[in-house]
Design a protein around this nucleic acid. Sequence first.
DNA 1: TAAGAAACATGATATTTATCATGTTTGTAT
DNA 2: ATACAAACATGATAAATATCATGTTTCTTA
Lengths: 235, 235
Amino acid sequence: MKPSFEHVECKHCSNRFNSVFCKTEHDKMEEIEALKICSTIKKGETIFREGSYAAGVYCINAGKIKLSMMGDEGKEQIVRLAKQGDIIGYKALLSGDRYSSTASALEDCNICFIPKEIFLVILQKDAALSFEMMKVLSNELKRAEEKITHLAQKPVRERVAETILFLKETYGLDAENNVNVALTREEIANLVGTATETAIRLLSEFNKDKIIELIGKKIKIINQDKLVKTANLYD
Amino acid sequence: MKPSFEHVECKHCSNRFNSVFCKTEHDKMEEIEALKICSTIKKGETIFREGSYAAGVYCINAGKIKLSMMGDEGKEQIVRLAKQGDIIGYKALLSGDRYSSTASALEDCNICFIPKEIFLVILQKDAALSFEMMKVLSNELKRAEEKITHLAQKPVRERVAETILFLKETYGLDAENNVNVALTREEIANLVGTATETAIRLLSEFNKDKIIELIGKKIKIINQDKLVKTANLYD
DNA sequence: TAAGAAACATGATATTTATCATGTTTGTAT
DNA sequence: ATACAAACATGATAAATATCATGTTTCTTA
């Protein structure tokens, strides 16, 4: 990874207080500052690859990233979607393991690489950062367990609806009120856990039923109530 | 929860060095000792319930516990199996949330309740404990993401085989080389993420094919290689 | 130890979902 | 602007799995 032309300083980073570093003290921040490497990632590029040695964590300054695991038949399963302010790659670092998923950019990104050594050392010294990390991990785990339950028990139709709501929750809406992320139908399927054709069919159906509106990869939620009902949440 | 007749001292606990407290210092241990409440739980009893306020964590001194979430149609999904040395209930505590799953005893258990306040305070002071907690969380999360991938992509047959291997890995073998845990077929189905009848059928099939041997709830693995192949792991 | 309940088992059937096939549209690079 | 590939779409079919029905076995407890 090549250093970018512009080094974004942590203390001026707009995500500073939405991130896991929200409570990290100034001097610890300076230590990170000195050793981090900022870079620009083009849409589609890989940041790290499943199975490779974990050299550090990446803090997302701007852009959207998908984390996916390869299933047995080479089919991608998207296990997490990250955005600005999030960090990625910490799981491997903390469990002392290799990366268990591949991170790739859904759009052009600015990311800051924080080497393993400095991150772990600061974690030892900074109880607040440790606690924030535990919170992040706990929330991720909770979400993962809910996903397991839904995968095991809910029909695809409900999961597709749920996924649209999840995308809205994660990335919000753009200026035209579209869900603010552009995924291919295949990626949506790999997030839902279904075949691409099935995802396409159900999206078209929701479109026909005026629950959502599809313009290319843009998804606009027309009838939120009906979408929530279709997702069959909160019973 | 009633205090048990015998208070098990942490420093004499046989699980002490297999647990998250392996690196916790003596004085911190004493603080826990002073405030923890040990109790005995009978098979089938509930330790905490999904949605209820998280008052603390439980450290398992002896016995096996299942953690499950209720799906939409009231169907149980088992999200974790815990054993002696494990702690449960930490996710809710760390994310400041209610318990997201229900914990119930698969057999008679001895558990120690550590109140929220003392656990969180010690976590602030003890970087080693924090780090161990992060490791535990990371490993759980990794496992959960693998489970998501397998649920989304692997057929039930493979998942049933995988679950048997997982049970062996988690609880080991008893004196007669049976997988050392007694689950109903329904519980196995709720772990696999399938209908009870489907789980029963596949177990019978494995039995007929001499991959496993079934005697009541006991499962003996006869042909480990074939079971691993059936699970279709490591491609 | 008998009665009732829970767990286990298995066949028949329905439903869901994946796969295969094929065609169209959209995007991208020369 | 054209050519090619990727993405999208949709019908037909197959396969996997759930559900329903029913009977048997095993476990509990009065």
